[in-house]
Design a protein around this nucleic acid. Structure first.
Lengths: 114, 114
DNA sequence: CATAATGGTTACGTTTTGGTTACCACTTTA
DNA sequence: TAAAGTGGTAACCAAAACGTAACCATTATG
């Protein structure tokens, strides 16, 4: 099934999943919650994401109007990513989701040892 | 990367994505928002999900404590799925997400025709 | 006897997503 | 001359997610 089937679905639950429903997107958005950041900063603060996947993720979020990319013509290059209004309005929802998880989370049980 | 790396992450944003971050999970949860449903009903009302994926999705949601499965020993079989408390508390968040999408959604532009 | 009905499972294949490694352009600094 | 620093890209590969088709058990009904 093609992503666009969801993207232009009649149902907003489907549609919002086409924007957010991958491993990294909510995390990248959350990282930008209160300040812009450069590519390298995002890469470092997320830690385990690869450059390629970060690039792809940022491009898709830009295409979906969640953030914008500002490129400075300097050397070495500098690029800053900032949430749009649409992106910022997502922050409270992501925070609620995190709070929901925290309230219901039970840490992994330690396995029985011999 | 293994799912469990996310599932037991320190960050609740990561963790909640390990529960919800697939195409169908929020949709299945939303379908159960105000009443239990049988397997066949879910399959029919979602429409485009395959039986296998619905089965997998329901199993994972059960394992994550979002819903429970009640099996009646009848013939032909009957199975009912119901949200747990944990699952129900997710509904307002999913609804907010849907509302967020609706507020920012712009329907697909019609392509220029010759 | 054949078919329908329910809630799956199994085997298999495809698509989507994520990851690795090497490499690039350009300038500054050592 | 060589390396460092930035924000990537390209080719390729692995894993996760999703999909299809056929099949199963059991009972009731025609």
């Amino acid at each position: 099934m093609n992503k666009d089937v969801f993207k232009y679905s009649d149902c907003p639950v489907y549609r919002s999943m086409s924007i957010l429903g991958t491993r990294w997107k909510p995390i990248v958005i959350y990282m930008l919650r209160d300040h812009k950041a450069r590519f390298g900063q995002l890469h470092a603060s997320i830690g385990t994401i690869s450059k390629k996947v970060l690039t792809d993720t940022l491009k898709e979020l830009e295409a979906d109007g969640i953030l914008f990319r500002e490129e400075f013509k300097e050397m070495p290059p500098r690029v800053e990513y900032t949430l749009t209004h649409k992106g910022k309005t997502l922050i409270p929802i992501i925070i609620q989701l995190a709070r929901w998880d925290n309230e219901h989370y039970e840490a992994k049980q330690v396995e029985k040892t011999a």
